[in-house]
């Protein structure tokens, strides 16, 4: 028995959501008195994996894993599960986790909870895990009844503690000779913005209240001053004022940053569904009856065109005083 945590590298570093998963998995491993094995593909500084709690690090080796293909990656992780005798497998609930965790679950006949937001309660063989359901209106407690268990962790649900010590990585050669994926990659288009919206700690988002794409300069500037990613409501993406990958909400990206600024967004439930997990929500709206104020921690009633420039100045001033 052991706990396995699948982790990833992005921009030369172990992803934050992966470190959260390692933290989470290591706590389960400690409770069960077993190893917390982090599994990773690719080269980077892996010291953080140990600091986040991994007691063993395996580096997956196979040329077929160079580019993401769910079929290869699932097969490779299955081999590690069997070599390590892992019974609990943890993923981050990101793009990879959403594809690979359920595939692995089907292969292993493992019960899976996707998008967990809390530490599991473990008693004997019984595992219960909480996740948000119905657009964040409720939390459901799941019991996983199978012998092997998979949990994918909603990003930004836990603060990361890095108080473990670094562990040397060992290579794990996956054997994928018998598998040939029929999927051919023709083109990869990486979003060029520095901040990946789902991983961002701070997000500045704006809606139809901004009147037109030509007015986004101040939104981008506020985001830049704060070091935040930009997002938008759905109509804004539908009207092509902003790119589709910025659209947050029920049909867009679900995010849960530490701070979410909603500027000129009314606060429709479908929008809230993707953002109401944010730790602190600030709403700026000219209509004091805007529904978003009911889901906000801080609000300013007023014209965004007047307030945002003042906020930019205030942030600059704040930065000057705190550096």
């Amino acid at each position: 028995m052991s706990v396995l945590i699948y982790t990833e590298i992005a921009k030369g570093k172990v992803k934050k959501s992966s470190l959260e998963a390692v933290n989470y998995g290591s706590r389960i491993a400690a409770q069960l008195n077993t190893t917390a094995t982090a599994v990773i593909v690719g080269d980077a500084d892996l010291a953080d994996l140990g600091k986040a709690g991994a007691t063993k690090v395996l580096k997956l080796k196979n040329d077929k894993l160079t580019n993401f293909d769910g079929q290869y990656l699932t097969a490779a992780i299955e081999q590690v599960v069997s070599a390590e005798g892992a019974t609990i497998i943890i993923f981050a609930h990101d793009f990879t986790g959403k594809e690979v965790a359920p595939r692995l679950a089907a292969k292993l006949k493992a019960g899976i909870v996707a998008g967990a937001v809390d530490n599991p309660t473990i008693s004997g063989d019984s595992f219960t895990v909480k996740k948000n359901v119905f657009s964040g209106k409720a939390v459901a407690t799941y019991s996983i009844t199978s012998a092997k268990k998979i949990i994918s962790l909603l990003p930004n649900s836990f603060p990361i503690e890095l108080n473990g010590s670094a562990v040397e990585a060992t290579d794990f050669a996956a054997n994928l000779d018998t598998i040939t994926s029929p999927i051919k990659v023709k083109e990869v288009k990486k979003v060029t913005t520095e901040l990946n919206l789902p991983d961002a700690e701070l997000v500045v988002s704006a809606g139809r209240g901004m009147k037109g794409p030509e007015n986004w300069g101040m939104i981008e500037e506020l985001a830049k001053e704060l070091g935040a990613a930009t997002a938008c409501s759905r109509p804004v993406a539908d009207m092509h004022w902003r790119p589709h990958h910025e659209h947050v909400g029920q049909t867009g990206v679900a995010i849960r940053p530490n701070l979410y600024f909603a500027i000129g967004i009314s606060g429709a439930i479908q929008h809230l569904a993707g953002v109401n997990g944010s730790k602190t929500i600030v709403v700026i709206n000219s209509d004091k009856e805007a529904p978003f104020f009911k889901s906000a921690d801080y609000g300013i009633v007023g014209d965004a065109f007047e307030i945002v420039p003042k906020l930019i100045e205030a942030v600059k001033h704040f930065k000057a005083n705190h550096n």
């Binding site: 948000n132 209106k137 104020f293 007023g302």
Partner: peptide, 28 residues
């Protein structure tokens, strides 16, 4: 392989703190 054993309604945010539009620096 899994079952839901219970639900709890999420607590909404109850009180929004309003900052006057003339002093947005208070927000920061």
């Amino acid at each position: 392989l899994t079952s839901i054993t219970g639900f709890t309604l999420s607590k909404g945010r109850t009180d929004c703190k309003f900052i006057d539009a003339s002093t947005p620096e208070k927000l920061i």
